[in-house]
Amino acid sequence: MAFPTPLTGVVPPLCTPLTSEREVDVRSLLRLVDRLVGAGVSGLFVLGSTSEAAFLTDRQRRQVVEAVVAHVGGQLPVLAGVIDMTTPRVLDHVESVTSAGADAVVATAPFYTRTHAAEIARHFRLLASASPVPVVAYDIPSAVHTKLDAGLVLELAAEGVLAGLKDSSGDLAGFRAVVAGARAYPGFAVLTGSELFVDSALALGGGGAVPGLANVDPDGYVRLDRLCRGGEWEAARAEQERLCGLFGLVGVGDPVRMGGGSSAIGAFKAALRLRGVIECAATAEPQVPLAPEEVERVAGFLAAAGLL
């Protein structure tokens, strides 16, 4: 099933604001949605990696989808992650998020067990047969330890199984191969999940970007997208380089006491709190919170980027 209209532009993967008790802070979530919509984004992606979907309960996942869908009211497409280890579990998530109003679902390859390419293809075909909305493949080998092959993605695009690809693999050559092959399938969305080479992805013919940093600076990514589409490549490169500098905030956490995910998500949330978008910068357990001095470093990155 294809998207009714082409999915292009900036589609931020929303952070999920939490209270100090680690419940979903719906009021902050909707304030973030308003901030992103006001900046001119093209869609919203909930329950992805930046959303901490892996840390949320099924109840919280549904709460996020219901709140965002109701608040957006059809202004923009809402894509919902259905990320889980096995096909039956993902199918349960498909039913949950689509009944809550999601306009598309986003799924990785199965993980935990070693998965053959034929099983990955079968997984996506089963999802598409059960889903009443388009299915987007999420290529994130850093999380699921499987790289989606460009040939397989294009085979599933040709069958109408997949409506698009969110490529967070960092493999620009593979991204290019999908972009080139997908020209045969009008409407197939090829989106980069990278914060750092959106200009390059769009220059190759990509449809848009799903950058986590767009939570912090949605105006910058919308501006970058428009510059690229207008052929203003020098200005686009300058804006991309400014965003690359800002992206340095994901490394503020001390690697001796926390992982890269704790540092990155913690920095995004600290930045959103410093910018007055969310009330609390808590991250889901067992992630390690940023120390006060690390939050100060986040503030320094914001100031350098002209955001404070």
Results as ranks from 00 to 15, higher is better:
2 A>W: 00
11 V>M: 06
12 P>I: 08
13 P>E: 06
14 L>P: 00
16 T>Y: 04
19 T>S: 15
19 T>L: 13
22 R>P: 00
23 E>V: 09
29 L>C: 10
35 R>A: 14
37 V>C: 13
40 G>Y: 10
40 G>A: 13
47 L>R: 01
51 S>C: 11
51 S>Y: 03
57 T>N: 06
68 V>Y: 05
68 V>L: 09
73 G>T: 12
74 G>A: 13
80 A>Y: 04
85 M>Q: 15
92 D>V: 11
105 V>Q: 02
109 A>P: 10
110 P>K: 05
111 F>A: 10
114 R>V: 14
114 R>G: 14
122 R>H: 15
124 F>H: 06
131 S>D: 03
134 P>W: 03
138 Y>N: 02
139 D>F: 03
143 A>N: 14
150 A>W: 05
156 L>G: 01
158 A>F: 01
159 E>P: 02
166 K>R: 11
167 D>N: 11
168 S>I: 04
173 A>Q: 14
183 R>L: 11
184 A>R: 15
185 Y>K: 03
186 P>Q: 04
186 P>V: 00
187 G>S: 00
189 A>S: 14
197 F>V: 14
198 V>H: 06
200 S>I: 09
206 G>A: 05
211 P>W: 04
213 L>E: 00
215 N>A: 07
220 G>K: 05
221 Y>F: 15
221 Y>M: 06
236 A>L: 10
240 Q>P: 02
243 L>Q: 02
244 C>L: 13
246 L>H: 03
251 G>I: 02
255 P>G: 06
255 P>K: 10
260 G>L: 12
262 S>F: 04
267 A>R: 04
269 K>Y: 01
277 V>S: 01
284 A>Q: 13
296 E>F: 04
297 R>A: 12
299 A>V: 01
302 L>N: 05
306 G>V: 10
